[in-house]
Design a protein around this nucleic acid. Structure first.
Length: 248
DNA sequence: AAGAGAAACAACCGCAAGCGA
DNA sequence: GTCGCTTGCGGTTGTTTCTCT
């Protein structure tokens, strides 16, 4: 199989997106949606490859993106999900509405993975005190990204956002936001079935963070035959005890 | 105040799965 | 069944910003 080369044409721009490019991309998707990423940049008049446009939209321009710092609950959820799912960032992101896989991946690599290392020397290091002082500061100041590069849609009126949403509704395009919303709703609906032992930390129990292990594993195994996940599913079902899960 | 190192974030790259012809 | 195209995902890199000395 020959993979279609990305950006094979010379002259396609790379690197950081300009506000103007963002504006063009938003305007185009607002009007036409994104049925074909490959054709989109050409039709929109952008000197970018479709892949780049998709990434920019998914990770930054989408109206449902939640910007700003991760809450404690979100971070704990990521840690627990990572423990279960490994580096399946998209799967983890699906359980955190408004967060992207890229963002979660970044957060994981920058500080979350340090928390779960057996060697806790980090906690005593200068780095930790820096991190903590930064966390404190983060709580009282806008995050860097918001400050330096405001969300393109934040400058739009609320109408603009709703127009985008409406335009998706019009064409019957189930956005990932819709899908995520649906996922979360179903997760919440199923919350009664959740083995409470799964979350030893009661603070995690809220509609935005709760999900069912079985629900997750089942959807994983049904959406794609994954021997690893089947193994875990079978294991948990046989055990019937979520306490058996490794805890942090 | 300036430089060095670390952290945070955005974006790119390559691979693989899905899907239609 | 295969071929080629598109999309999605995860790993990685590059740049910017922050903190410390």
């Amino acid at each position: 199989m020959v993979r279609a080369p990305c950006c094979e044409k010379m002259g396609l721009k790379k690197g950081p997106w300009t506000p103007e490019e963002d504006r063009v991309l938003i305007a185009y998707i607002q009007q036409h949606g994104h049925d074909n990423w490959r054709a989109l940049p050409k039709q929109a008049g952008l000197l970018r490859c479709g892949k780049s446009c998709r990434l920019r939209w998914i990770n930054y321009l989408r109206p449902d993106i939640k910007r700003g710092n991760f809450s404690e609950e979100e971070e704990e959820t990521i840690i627990k999900l990572h423990e279960l799912l490994g580096n399946r960032w998209s799967a983890i992101a699906a359980k955190l509405p408004g967060r992207t896989d890229n963002e979660i991946k970044n957060v994981w690599h920058t500080h979350l993975k340090k928390r779960i290392k057996p060697n806790q020397s980090f906690q005593d290091s200068k780095r930790k005190s820096r991190a903590e002082s930064k966390t404190d500061l983060d709580a009282i100041k806008p995050n860097r990204q918001e400050f330096a590069s405001p969300h393109p849609l934040s400058s739009c009126s609320e109408n603009s956002t709703s127009v985008i949403t409406n335009s998706f509704s019009k064409v019957g395009d189930a956005t990932s936001a819709d899908i995520k919303e649906e996922t979360m709703v179903s997760s919440c609906q199923l919350s009664d079935d959740i083995d409470e032992n799964l979350w030893s930390d009661a603070s995690l129990i809220d509609c935005g963070a709760v999900w069912s292990l079985e629900d997750s594993l089942t959807s994983f195994c049904s959406s794609g035959t994954d021997e690893g996940m089947n193994y875990w599913l079978q294991l948990f079902m046989e055990a019937g005890e979520l306490d058996e899960l490794p805890h942090i």
